[in-house]
Amino acid sequence: MSFYYGDEKISFTRLARKSESSKVLIKVHPDCQVVALAPEAASRDSVLSAVKKRGRWIYQQLSEFKTQLADYQPRQFVSGESHYYLGKQYLLKVIEDSEAKQSVKLLRGSIEVTVRSKSQDKVSGLLKDWYRLRAKETFSKRLDAVLEQALWVEERPPMRVLTMQTQWGSCSPNGRITLNPYLVKAPRECIDYVILHELCHIAEHNHSERFYRLMGQVMPNWESTKERLDQMAGKLFL
């Protein structure tokens, strides 16, 4: 579906909203994908009307994300590139050694990748595996740390790490939390924000007043933290 905001044509995807809420939930993702989550019973016109009412906000979000994406070039996975880990910037150093064990090491100011033969796919693959391993370790520790604040959660929820193109995290109806391994590139405060966001969904699966009240209780500065994470998205998703 699409509509015009001024001279700008904005396209969006309509998806079914599983909750009982009758409201249309609108999301603008870092890759500039616009999604409208609407009840299945909602008419096409009512969904379009709801999205148009948020036209200005959608346009502003798209403009910000487009600016971010324009500033970043696709990774080449060669020495000298900038890569992130826990909010800090590191220089990539690729070492070719035909007899060495292929590995990734985090050093002071750099991420060192050793390969038997230089290949963009090989360096990229080793880095992805390294980020995923670090993500599992980091997310597990942060989940344990923030659970002390989530008093409504009776048991430690199951957690998995899964690469997603447009989301940092999600929470299933049965309480399983899924986190994007790219999130480990963000500052710890941003990681805590995403985990707390998903923990709040265990109590309230919708973005209701109760949900935002819970977020405000466990992380009073969550809005500024979310904005910080959104601004970094273009760098972290690469």
Rank of each mutant, 00 (worst) to 15 (best):
W57K: 11
I58W: 12
I58C: 11
Y59N: 14
Y59T: 13
Q60S: 15
Q60I: 14
Q60C: 14
Q60H: 14
Q61F: 03
Q61E: 15
Q61V: 10
Q61A: 15
L62K: 14
L62E: 14
L62Y: 13
S63P: 08
S63E: 14
S63M: 12
E64K: 14
K66C: 09
K66E: 15
T67L: 12
T67I: 02
T67V: 06
T67P: 00
Q68M: 11
Q68W: 06
Q68P: 05
L69N: 13
L69F: 03
A70T: 12
A70K: 15
A70D: 15
Y72W: 14
Y72C: 10
Y72A: 09
Y72T: 11
Q73G: 06
Q73V: 12
P74K: 09
P74N: 10
P74V: 13
R75M: 14
R75A: 12
Q76R: 13
F77T: 04
V78G: 05
V78K: 10
S79F: 07
S79G: 07
S79E: 04
G80N: 02
E81T: 06
E81C: 10
E81D: 04
H83P: 00
H83F: 08
H83C: 02
H83G: 03
H83S: 07
H83R: 10
Y84P: 04
Y85T: 01
L86C: 10
L86M: 14
L86H: 09
L86Y: 11
L86R: 12
L86N: 09
G87N: 03
K88C: 09
K88M: 11
Q89Y: 00
Y90K: 05
Y90Q: 02
L91S: 06
L92Q: 04
L92T: 08
K93T: 03
K93L: 07
V94R: 03
V94Y: 09
E96A: 15
E96V: 15
E96G: 12
D97H: 12
D97Q: 15
D97W: 13
S98M: 11
S98E: 15
E99A: 11
E99Q: 14
K101F: 00
K101H: 01
Q102R: 05
Q102F: 03
S103Y: 00
V104E: 00
K105A: 13
K105I: 08
K105G: 01
L106R: 09
L107R: 10
L107N: 10
L107S: 08
L107H: 01
R108I: 13
R108F: 08
G109D: 07
G109E: 06
G109S: 07
S110Y: 02
S110N: 07
S110L: 04
S110P: 02
I111C: 00
V113S: 01
V113H: 01
T114V: 10
T114C: 08
V115F: 02
S117P: 00
S117R: 07
S117V: 10
S117Y: 11
S119I: 00
Q120Y: 00
D121C: 00
D121V: 03
D121W: 01
D121H: 05
D121L: 05
K122Q: 08
K122V: 12
K122G: 01
K122A: 06
V123C: 11
V123E: 01
V123I: 06
V123L: 09
S124R: 11
S124L: 01
S124N: 06
S124H: 03
